[in-house]
């Protein structure tokens, strides 16, 4: 075969071969990001259990919107803010260690998910909200119940909860994950932004998560005082509820007495569970975002007696 003809044949083959390579790379990258589970660690017994928190109260009373026993008091009220249904949970605990975290399937990793209500059931949670969906990203500190799972810094401020149950934001460019552990942080969530500090709204009307500039379902956690917390979940993306902007969410927090508040994963992930029942109208069901359909997420933040891995 003449040399030029042989060369031409080679060139003609480059197109289809490269196209196939590109398609394979794209398929693999998409599957690796959205589908393939990577288990990295199994949740072990917590390092934060206090002797007080180990005792389960027996005289509990509960309704569809409240729970009360000797150690834990939770009351959920529903408000309408800007044509949006907002669920505000007022939580008072006798010991901060009743505020805990759980990971889906008791495993740290990527694409390992369970719905908030299933995770809540796994740990006998009295009350639960979705967390920061850490498994959807490659960065952002992950410290749960005193164990450091991920030390790669993200861009947003980190919510740190110390062993006394106090919440504050930390700039990951100023603190390493280990430094946060050394400071006594037992839970670190990386989503944000910080909504309220010292009782004042610290997000502007134009602040948003990533490139988002619209109203959405939201989840946020805040602190009113010692062992006194506020969790807010709003509906959104439905004809009944438009959703909240971050500044509106922050204002709800301040109006309910929060001195500090932090935005967690929202959108289809936003879910609030009390006594095993979903309180809000999640829109996480994928196609069509049908109301009432929960999205499976990486983690939850909950109030309860049982600890994951114990």
């Amino acid at each position: 075969m003449p040399k030029s003809k042989h060369r031409l044949k080679k060139i003609l083959k480059f197109g289809p071969i490269y196209a196939l390579t590109l398609l394979s790379l794209t398929g693999y990258t998409a599957a690796d990001t959205f589908l393939v589970s990577h288990s990295i660690a199994t949740v072990k017994a917590s390092k934060t259990t206090s002797s007080t928190a180990a005792t389960v109260a027996t005289n509990a009373t509960s309704t569809s919107t409240s729970y009360k026993d000797d150690n834990i008091s939770i009351t959920i009220k529903t408000e309408t803010v800007n044509n949006t249904k907002v669920y505000v949970a007022d939580i008072v605990v006798s010991d901060s260690s009743y505020l805990k975290s759980a990971l889906a399937q008791s495993t740290y990793g990527t694409n390992i998910t369970e719905t908030t209500s299933d995770q809540a059931e796994d740990v006998d949670a009295i009350f639960a909200i979705n967390g920061d969906y850490y498994g959807y990203r490659n960065d952002g500190y992950v410290i749960r119940n005193g164990t450091l799972y991920r030390s790669t810094a993200g861009d947003e401020d980190v919510l740190g909860i110390d062993s006394n149950g106090n919440m504050a934001s930390y700039d990951p460019s100023e603190y390493t994950a280990q430094e946060l552990i050394d400071k006594g942080i037992v839970q670190a969530y990386s989503f944000g932004p910080t909504l309220v500090e010292n009782g004042k709204v610290v997000v502007s009307d134009s602040d948003e998560v990533g490139q988002s500039m619209s109203s959405n379902p939201r989840t946020a956690i805040g602190q009113v005082g010692e062992n006194h917390y506020i969790a807010v979940v709003s509906d959104g993306r439905t004809s009944e509820s438009e959703g909240l902007s971050l500044s509106e969410l922050a204002q709800v927090m301040v109006d309910n007495g929060a001195t500090y508040a932090y935005n967690l994963d929202g959108g289809g992930s936003s879910t609030m569970v009390l006594n095993g029942k979903v309180i809000n109208n999640p829109v996480g069901g994928g196609a069509g975002n049908s109301t009432g359909s929960e999205r499976a997420v990486s983690d939850i933040l909950y109030i309860g007696y049982k600890e994951q891995g114990s």
Binding site: L25, Y28, T29, A30, D32, T33, F34, Y136, R137, N138, D139, V209, G210, Q211
Partner: peptide, 11 residues
């Protein structure tokens, strides 16, 4: 797609 989903992949 990754940005909108708020996720990432080094690939």
């Amino acid at each position: 797609v990754f940005d909108i989903a708020n996720t990432s992949n080094n690939l």
